[in-house]
Computed example of a mutant assay.
Amino acid sequence: MAAGYNRPRKERRMNKKIIALAVALLPAAAMADVTIYGSIRAGLTSTDNIKTNFERTTGVDDFSSRIGFKGNEDLGNGLKAIWKLENGFRVDGTTGAGSSSGTFANRESFVGLQGDFGTLRLGFLDDVLTDTELTDFWIGPRNAGAELFPNYERADDTVKNAVKYNSPSFGGFDFSAFWGTNETNVNDNGVAVDAKHTYGARAGYAANGLMAGLAYQVATDANKAANKDDKSLRFEVGYEANDLFVAATAQQERYYDGGVDEIKQNAYALSASYTIGQFTPKATYSWLSNDKNSDAKDGSKQFAIGVDYAASKRTTLFAQYGQIKYNSEQEVTKKVNGVDVVTGRGDKGSTVNVGVKHNF
Rank of each mutant, 00 (worst) to 15 (best):
Y321Q: 01
K228D: 12
N327A: 10
N242C: 07
D243F: 08
V307W: 00
Q251L: 04
N266E: 06
R314L: 07
G322C: 03
K292D: 10
A310R: 08
F318V: 01
A267Y: 00
N327K: 11
A225D: 13
V332W: 00
K325R: 13
K228S: 13
N227R: 15
Y239Q: 03
E253V: 07
W287H: 06
A250D: 00
N327F: 07
F245I: 04
K224Q: 12
A269D: 00
S328D: 15
K335A: 14
K264Y: 05
G277P: 02
S273E: 07
S300E: 10
S294D: 10
F318M: 06
S273D: 10
T249G: 00
K224G: 00
N290F: 05
Q252A: 11
Y255F: 13
S232A: 14
G258Q: 02
G258T: 01
Q252E: 09
V332D: 00
Q320G: 03
E236G: 10
K292A: 13
N293K: 15
E240W: 10
S271I: 03
E262D: 14
N227A: 15
S271G: 07
L233V: 14
K313N: 10
N290Q: 08
Q302V: 07
Q278C: 07
I324Q: 07
K228W: 06
E253G: 02
Q265K: 11
N223V: 05
V260Q: 09
N290L: 07
Y256F: 15
Q323R: 14
A267L: 04
I276Y: 09
K264I: 04
G258E: 00
N327G: 12
Q265N: 07
E236C: 05
F303W: 15
V237R: 05
A247Q: 04
S232R: 08
V246I: 15
N242G: 02
A226I: 09
Y274A: 03
K292N: 08
S300T: 12
Q323Y: 06
L233H: 05
Q278M: 14
D243L: 10
A247F: 03
S286T: 09
K334V: 12
N266L: 01
G299D: 03
A296R: 11
Q252L: 08
K325Q: 07
A225V: 15
S232Q: 10
N290A: 09
Y321I: 02
T280S: 08
P281C: 06
K297V: 11
F303D: 04
Q265L: 06
